[in-house]
Computed example of a mutant assay.
Amino acid sequence: MSRFDYHNILKQVEEKGRDMYGAKFAIDDIDRPVVLKLIAYFLRDGGVAAKERIDLHKGLLITGPIGCGKTAIMRILSNFSLPDHRPFLKSSMDISLEFTDLGNDVILKYSRRAFNPYRRLPHVHCFDDLGHEPIVNFWGNKINLMGQILFTRYNLMHSHGMITHAMTQFNAVELEDIYGDLLRSRMREMFNLIAFHPTSRDKRK
């Protein structure tokens, strides 16, 4: 049993989605199991989370086909999150563009400096389109930027409880090809894997 009314919350999520993305926004039946898991996570509903094998001390790795609604659902559900758990969403591609201007400070911005300056609580970041960012060049050196950020945030997870979320269309094997097997093993510790169904429709059409 849960103290939350998930049926009503799901209606609220759809209403918020229509406010943000237009009158045609709807959660399809095939997507409801995923969305309900995400609701439990953001509500910090320990009983339902445990039943769904979701670790509230880890972040979320949300996978699914292009256009299935990963980003939209994450933006909507962030409105239902407690302030300390509300994620800052940022595209991995945009972070790569930042790097061309700021260099290594970008790695620090999203890792060692990603703390509330007043309460020293770590910021929750959500990296969208993980795996699509290019390898960046810095003074002639090629850098796997998001790989370095994730490694640093992994260490900060253990030392400061820093939570990281990511969204991607790639599966675990493809992510290993991009970031290597060592980071893949770290990602198992960092993330709960939440997968949209492969046949989830393209919500952009």
Rank of each mutant, 00 (worst) to 15 (best):
D45L: 07
Y110M: 02
D129N: 10
L97N: 14
F196G: 00
F80R: 02
D101I: 13
M1V: 07
D31R: 05
F80A: 00
R184K: 15
L82M: 11
H132T: 14
A114W: 00
D19G: 01
T100F: 07
Q12E: 15
V34S: 10
L175D: 01
L60N: 12
E174S: 11
L102V: 06
L182T: 15
I54S: 04
N141A: 14
R44T: 08
G47V: 13
N79V: 06
R188Q: 13
G59C: 08
I194M: 13
F4I: 00
I178L: 10
V34G: 10
L156A: 02
I135F: 03
M157R: 12
R53S: 12
P134E: 03
D94F: 05
E15W: 13
C68F: 01
E189S: 08
I66S: 14
M20E: 05
N116W: 00
Y21S: 05
G103Y: 13
D94Y: 12
Q12N: 10
L36D: 14
N104F: 13
R186P: 07
I143H: 12
V124P: 11
M190F: 01
F80Y: 04
G180M: 07
F191P: 01
E133T: 01
N155W: 07
C68K: 00
K205M: 07
D202E: 04
F151W: 09
N144V: 11
K16V: 14
T199K: 08
I30T: 07
F138N: 12
T168R: 07
F191N: 01
L102S: 13
G64Q: 02
Y154W: 15
F25T: 09
V173R: 07
R119S: 15
N137V: 00
T63M: 15
F127A: 11
G131E: 04
G59M: 11
R86Y: 05
I39F: 08
K11R: 09
Q148W: 10
L38F: 09
N79T: 14
I95H: 10
M162F: 12
I76Y: 01
S78F: 02
R53V: 10
D84K: 13
L130F: 02
N141K: 13
N141L: 04
G67R: 01
N116A: 00
S78E: 09
H7Y: 06
G59R: 10
P33T: 05
L56G: 09
Y179W: 01
D45F: 02
E52P: 00
S78M: 06
M187R: 03
M146E: 03
L102F: 15
L10F: 05
R186Y: 15
F4H: 12
T199E: 09
N8L: 15
D5L: 03
P87Y: 11
M74N: 04
T164E: 04
L145K: 03
L56C: 04
Y21R: 09
G22E: 09
G17F: 02
